[in-house]
Design a protein around this nucleic acid. Structure first.
Lengths: 161, 161
DNA sequence: CTGATCGGAGATCAATATGATCTCCGATAA
DNA sequence: TTATCGGAGATCATATTGATCTCCGATCAG
């Protein structure tokens, strides 16, 4: 629970690898094409699964794909502008702590919990987590840049009401 | 991914219910015993599964169990002192964003990723999330805390699922 | 221009973890 | 003392995730 999926892990690893490769040339002006196999071997992850992840990232515009011999992927933006939230959403779809996080797309709202007294505070929590993910970029994962501090969730512990 | 399990949901609901029941009497001095069936019916959740959750909470000391006729559960502490992190850990075990969050209990460290360049920044992220959970208490879940809108989650409309 | 090779994309299959259920055990009040 | 009520553990089913296989399109070499 509250755990990253393997796909998310793989995706982040791959992106970090790509970023490190490209940064050798300073910026995106001379991008270094990277293919699935290369990354898979570097990190010892199954290349087929990684392929799926990269495809999802490509589809959402985080990276660019190039077919043919000498083909491969490269970052579509600077590492600085790629947030973790963006990456995770590309790989996993909309993020959500609870099942009822997103508007009941098909009318099946929270099953029977009509008096779900839990939803509101959890959505708040979710929003805080999202902010964390949205404030952290690929760049932050590179060197070991410090970290974002957490703005308190409790918002004045009083509930005030 | 990054989603609460049903057990976590149920547990939080149950605790909130218990807290609201007990608060009718002002504090813990005159606790109101609550049994599994009562909560299950209130929220329309399967009582057997809820039972497991309550048992886990009891074992970890969040609530007290009392057997026999007229038995049931009651909060072991004030709502103000019960953190969400504590509850989740009681139900799910140690929290962790990544598989390698916790010390390789059985020597099986991050599979083969020896050059896992992802671990450190993710652990930081995990720590931030934990702080969120650890700063939020059952008390904070009680009132009708306002609400944050969810659409910040969807960011680019690309995801639609 | 043509074909062989390389990589991408989609569909399909298996494993794990979660959700749900069933049965037994212990405690207490009548 | 006993019947009843609730708790606890073990077991089974399902859904999500992880992994694999096969086909399609693109590009460069000949």
């Amino acid at each position: 629970m509250l755990k990253f999926s393997k796909k998310a892990d793989y995706g982040l690893m791959a992106l970090q690898y790509m970023a490190s490769r490209q940064s050798q040339y300073g910026d995106l002006s001379a991008p270094r094409m990277v293919n699935t196999k290369e990354i898979a071997e570097e990190y010892n992850i199954p290349s087929e699964l990684l392929a799926k992840v990269l495809q999802a990232l490509a589809k959402s515009g985080v990276i660019e794909s190039h077919n043919g011999p000498k083909g491969g992927y490269l970052l579509a933006h600077q590492a600085k502008t790629i947030t973790i939230a963006r990456v995770l959403e590309a790989i996993e779809g909309p993020l959500g702590i609870t099942d009822c996080s997103h508007d009941n797309h098909d009318g099946t709202l929270c099953s029977q919990q009509e008096h779900c007294t839990i939803r509101t505070p959890l959505l708040k929590l979710q929003d805080s987590i999202y902010q964390l993910l949205n404030n952290m970029t690929l760049q932050d994962m590179m060197g070991g840049t410090p970290l974002i501090t957490v703005q308190s969730l409790t918002t004045g512990q009083g509930v005030t009401r």
